[in-house]
Design a protein around this nucleic acid. Structure first.
Lengths: 174, 174
DNA sequence: ATGTTTTAATTCATTGATGAACTATCCGCT
DNA sequence: AGCGGATAGTTCATCAATGAATTAAAACAT
């Protein structure tokens, strides 16, 4: 695989060339966008690698973790779609996959018979307890050389970006 | 769609609950990972939205931009795979798609007959010149409220993360 | 020179995710 | 009560991306 830093160097060159041809381009901001996307993809890859041995998908893992983290260990497909930012179609597939492995159960809601109640099983909880800890060292390594202040800054800046993105998607997407 | 900030709030709760059950978890770092992934996905969505009217894909757009930004406007599938972090298989598809629309051409290399030379066409350049500027306002909006220092910090922290990720993927992926 | 290994690109089969159409249930209204 | 519209979940068809196998040409080693 190509190194992330190599790709970034090339991106830097590319952006400065393009911004010479098209001076109106917000070069700094475009660069930050690309940077963030590239780092995000890199992290995603790293995560996928850690999940592969467990035959888990990014979205399946996320769904399972959301269930795990809820006080009652249960939710509904619709809610999970929201929280995991997944399409309803895909959530059906995810629930199928997790249910087939006995990590979750699907039951009918009594109050609203359209609703399906998804619940993490004891096996699901054991599974999470087992697979999570081996990830910790690598997560730590990702932030090697980050001071507490660095982390606070990154946190703040990412949240600010999220706020701006929310405002953007509110706008009548022109 | 669900707001990013809502998802983030939920994630915060989730992480703090999980870290109570599993105190060994590097909570701050895990939260930063999730934050970055979520913001990355949000940006990706925003980008996809701007590309859709042009019937372009994220990876197709990136490939086209790499070609556009090169001094000679040409490259090879293998090189493009590296720079765009795409699989060779997918690059074949991308090149097919772009070539079918007349944005690039595919030719045989003379020096090495295994190689294929991909070159952006004049139409491809016009296409980029036309589609790029309308994106600028939205890119600017993403960074509303960011001071020059904020941007510098974000840039620095993302690059540091990239470096760490590179070291991680070097390691004998255990 | 000739046989082996490596590299470049493609094709084919499969997985993951999306969009459109469908079914069942609930809510609001007259 | 019962009709119309909204909501929840699923199924089916489609697209994008990946992995394994294939072809062709170059590089390397005898």
């Amino acid at each position: 695989m190509a190194k992330l830093t190599t790709c970034i160097d090339l991106m830097d060159e590319g952006i400065s060339r393009v911004s010479q041809i098209i001076p109106a381009m917000p070069a700094t901001e475009a660069r930050l966008c690309r940077l963030l996307l590239m780092v995000g993809e890199g992290m995603s890859e790293e995560l996928a690698f850690k999940l592969k041995p467990h035959k888990l998908n990014h979205s399946e893992f996320l769904t399972l973790m959301i269930l795990y983290s809820r006080p009652d260990g249960s939710s509904t497909p619709g809610e999970l779609c929201e929280f995991a930012t997944q399409g309803a179609t895909n959530m059906t597939r995810i629930a199928n996959a997790l249910a087939r492995r006995g990590l979750i159960t699907r039951g009918a809601s009594e109050s609203d018979r359209r609703r399906v109640v998804i619940r993490i099983t004891a096996a699901g909880r054991r599974f999470v307890m087992k697979m999570l800890p081996p990830m910790f060292p690598r997560i730590d390594t990702m932030f090697d050389g980050f001071s507490a202040t660095d982390k606070r800054h990154l946190d703040r800046l990412l949240r600010k970006l999220a706020g701006n993105l929310d405002r953007l998607s509110d706008d009548p997407h022109p």
